[in-house]
Design a protein around this nucleic acid. Structure first.
Lengths: 251, 251
DNA sequence: GCCGTTTGTTGATGCAGGTCAAGTCTGCCG
DNA sequence: CGGCAGACTTGACCTGCATCAACAAACGGC
């Protein structure tokens, strides 16, 4: 609600160097992760034409809400988003975190309405990809069609990994897996795999991993004490990746 | 292993009336659930041509295994399949059950190898749909492309429902949700929504819902005692659907 | 720099569901 | 029909995480 106030642009925090991504796909730093991957340059230009680059999303702002009409999927350009859905009894289940280069919103396709909400965890920017245009384009660009099938399939396998994590692993293993996942995704974007700042709160982490805040907090202090990870607030430094990896498969 | 013996056809148990599905999509009883839904009859014929109808799969037989090269997705014609993956530490996580009309194998698209294994819980038959043909056909049939995007998206939202279930719900709620899900899917196929036989073992149910066999068993006896469900071995009769529904949202 | 609010930490206690250990039932095969 | 293996149930006990409660630290607005 509070975040719905008319956009106030003044004193906006510096958006992580704007040269990191550009106004078109061809020279976007993220294009090896995102949609255009493996397209011919002529095709990229066509894709470029359908993509809409919106104004930055404020921290806490919604990209879309559960139940909204589905029209587009979104590529994250900067910042972080979380996707979440409401359970029948009104609690929140975080279904994923989305970093630059990743695509969010694909769960809306089946019902023509969004099955989850997406909100920015920090000031973020996205590329909006109207789905109907994407469909049309896919029909004439086999590479694009395949790539999009693959993205959706990846989402499925990732959800299944989370399912496994939730159904089989201890609190320690879950946190370890999350840290490693973030680390890997950072590496893919050529950021540090060992040192980063969590953009999500402990509550969000708990909500994602099926744990309470208290447990999340306790696990972090435990990791700190055993010198596997250096934790200071949201600042994380992985000290012993091997140990972390061992934790994920139950000690 | 044992199920890999050369196919022995003699004394095969009667395959639930073979007239229920046919050798082509146009008059298949399941076509409103399955792929051809919403296609022109001319298009259905084309789709028909790429589909391969294999011989029945024996109980316990594998349709594909985790790590196999990915080539096709499969529509279940009769019987039930379970999909499962091995965790790093060698335990099994069931990721889904698949009933007639449903599509299995879509998680293999992203890596070109199957991310899970699929095996028959009872004698089953499937239609094999070679993915490369499906891709080609999709390019010229917008309806088909859309339908397949929707199927994948549905798989995502269903996985997310399972995630929510695993991370937020009690054992009772999980079992209740599974029973209701099976009931709903039966109804869609015009079978009884209140009375059915579970094709999966208690172990499988536990593995799917993140519970031990013992807990699954206890929940069933509890449901029996409170006269919400009548359980006799794998035979289930839902006595009080409303109560069951209440259970799913935490009493 | 100060103050209220939000976010995170720590401790004490309880319970749902896991684990271990016997059984019992079912269905299958000779 | 009898005997055996796998599937299921039941009970006793234990443990990891939730819950409740109090507090501390960080952040954001003025």
């Amino acid at each position: 609600m509070t975040s719905q106030a008319p956009i106030k642009v003044s004193r906006q925090e510096p958006l992580a160097c704007s040269h990191e991504f550009s106004a078109n796909c061809s020279d976007c730093r993220l294009n090896s992760i995102c949609l255009p991957f493996s397209l011919e340059s002529r095709d990229i230009e066509e894709l470029d034409r359908i993509i809409q680059r919106g104004r930055p999303l404020q921290k806490g702002g919604h990209l879309y809400r559960q139940g909204d009409d589905f029209g587009s999927v979104y590529a994250v350009r900067s910042g972080t988003l979380k996707a979440y859905r409401m359970t029948d009894d009104g609690r929140e289940q975080v279904t994923g975190f989305y970093f630059p280069g990743e695509i969010v919103g694909m769960d809306g396709i089946s019902q023509s309405r969004h099955a989850s909400s997406a909100r920015a965890l920090e000031t973020s920017a996205v590329c909006e990809i109207p789905f109907s245009s994407l469909e049309k384009l896919s029909a004439s660009m086999p590479q694009l069609q395949r790539h999009f099938f693959q993205l959706m399939s990846r989402e499925i396998t990732e959800d299944q990994q989370l399912i496994t994590l939730l159904s089989k692993s201890s609190a320690d293993a879950r946190i370890a897996a999350l840290l490693l996942s973030i680390s890997m995704r950072n590496a893919r974007r050529r950021l540090s795999a060992t040192q980063f700042r969590l953009s999500m709160s402990r509550v969000d982490i708990g909500n994602y991993l099926g744990l309470t805040v208290e447990t999340v907090s306790r696990v972090f202090t435990r990791l700190q004490k055993s010198e596997i990870v250096d934790v200071s607030n949201r600042e994380i430094r992985i000290l012993d990746e091997a140990a972390l990896r061992q934790l994920t498969s139950g000690e």
